[in-house]
Amino acid sequence: MDKILEVKDLHVDFDTYNGVVHAIRGVSFHLNAGETLAIVGESGSGKSITVRSILQLLAKNGTISKGEVLYHGDDLLQKSDKEMDKLRGNKISMIFQDPMTSLDPTMTIGKQVAEPLLIHNNVSKKDALKRAEEVLRLVGIPNPQARMNDYPHQFSGGQRQRIVIAIAIVDYPEILIADEPTTALDVTVQAQIIDLLKELQQKIGTSIIFITHDLGVVAGIADRVAVMYAGRLVEFGSVNDIFYNPQHPYTWGLLDSMPTLDTNESDRLNSIPGTPPNLLNPPKGDAFAPRNAYAMEIDEEQQPPFFKVSKHHYAATWLLHPNAPKVTPPASILNRFEKFKKLGGNVK
């Protein structure tokens, strides 16, 4: 498969009032053509910052201190502002979290959707607006011709998110970065937006990086999943690998706290105790260790490397070291292992 995007050893720092926050501490992943990669993690884990670094849309106090972002082999971090402007909204575009605040309140939506076309392509205003109308129809805005001249406040949250998506796809981008596109929406609308994204991916053949903290959403859309914690990836693999053969205790914790169809009414949903570490002074060892019921001495001393689980499945936990003791994951995870066996997988 074609790797169209590859992030290598990304480090991002933020200068704050209290000191330098090491928000991203060595993240590497890649995106294959046509696939959907989900990046999962709780708030503050650095997923948004990671994808914003790809487009270099960080806040002013943030700097990419190390790493490469290879787009078709070209390092985007070496490009000038002007060259980046040409890529943004054209080859790589982004959908934002909050549709209520993402649209310019004083510009008609027609103009907002047509804007990327006018920036990147040599088209007339009329043609751009015509194309904007088509795309609005495509994303499911009813009666787009009439509503082109309306302002954002005249639309509901779900419709606004459709408009934000229309802006992102109007120029048929190769890569679509969706930063928690459903978080601010009602559950019913969430499903509609996910379906829309899947449908659009088929129609225009774009690759998607999908950021979310909600594993339930991931199952419906992703091909591969990367789990992030405290500025680092802890596990990545195919959807089945992550959902039915998770290896990292943090992934266990995430899955254990998610209700499934098998969850009985009497079962309690579990949560992961504690809070993520302060990234002003990142821990020396595994950042998850203080919250990890399976933590070992080595976790506090040394960061675990990625251990290979299967061909495309890796996890960064010392539990996979040959010298590590055999531990019993939570019951719900054991159930998942059972399912994995049925799917023909090889549980370690």
Binding site: R88, M94, E115
Partner: peptide
Amino acid sequence: SSDYIELAKSKGNSSWGVVAKHALRNSLI
């Protein structure tokens, strides 16, 4: 620092374009 300015940047507007097309009018009102 608002979200729609970030979106305008992600559309590929130059920093001058962001100011001229979006920031100026919204702050003038």
